[in-house]
Amino acid sequence: MSALDALRGWPPPVLDPAGPFAGPVTTVAWVLFAMGAVVLAIVLVATAAALFGPRRWRARLGGERLVWLGGFAFPVVVLTGLLIYGLTLTRDLSAPPAPGEVRVRVTGEMWWWRVGYLDARGGEAFQDANQIHIPPRAPVVLELEAADVIHSLWIPRLAGKLDMIPGRRNILRLQADRPGVYAAQCAEFCGGPHALMGLVVVAHEPRAYAAWQARQGRPATPLPSRGAEVFAAAGCGACHTVRGTAANGLAGPDLTHIGSRRTLGAGILPNHQGTLAAWVADSQALKPGNRMPAYPVLSGRDLRALAAYLEALK
């Protein structure tokens, strides 16, 4: 399944859960829709009877008894039930993480996601951006932080959303029951191109996850190429890190393995040489307001070389 297929909106992701932190919420949603439909039907029937019903019906409806029954007794019973249901579920879904669960630190930045994979001691093993790789069928702990303004991480098929607030750390747990690609999005308005701040969550089979982890942990091994020269000459390393090379900038996403990413520009474009070249040439046209300047100075040849270099960083 390609990454962009995962971004489709049908069936509605909130109603198409893929893990135990989203599934019960879908059940709640259906219960609530049923409740809403029933209550709405009652109100509509009562209103219709009040307006058009025979005199006898209207006489029965037109007193304080209806207000007590419909406006007080019935809501109190229904809401008490819903409240207990909701409180139970809130408790279950917000249980604290168990020791030994995989931990990933996700930092919201204007308008992309810094993703740090933590080792057993809580230190950062390596960094990636705009996608979160997780093993399947095991709870994963996301430590949510923000570098600048408030963001909110929302992966509807895996869990509800949780805000990323400067100066605080929030804990979001999620679990994918099946390998696959899950779309996610920033849900709190964070200025400028907030609309174009997406990411993908990739759940691997356990063995593939281990392999991916091993590969990502390694520095890049680029061969000397014209693209590498353009990268260095254009000053890309001032903002981006490519582990294993001189590029060690911290402002932008780590590009050590950019070639292996599914999307570009924080979940908005498929990742291949063409889009890479277009992004470098004029990312402002693709995602207006983002922090990366356009590079109109690069010739077509340079761009192609640079894109080839980046794509090879797998």
Binding site: V25, G36, L82, K161, L162
Partner: peptide, 19 residues
């Protein structure tokens, strides 16, 4: 009002909030 009751349910609000 009915959709209001829905979002008063905390787990549902985690999904519906800011959408």
């Amino acid at each position: 009002g009915l959709s209001g009751v829905m979002v008063a349910m905390v787990p549902f609000d985690w999904q519906a909030h800011d959408t």
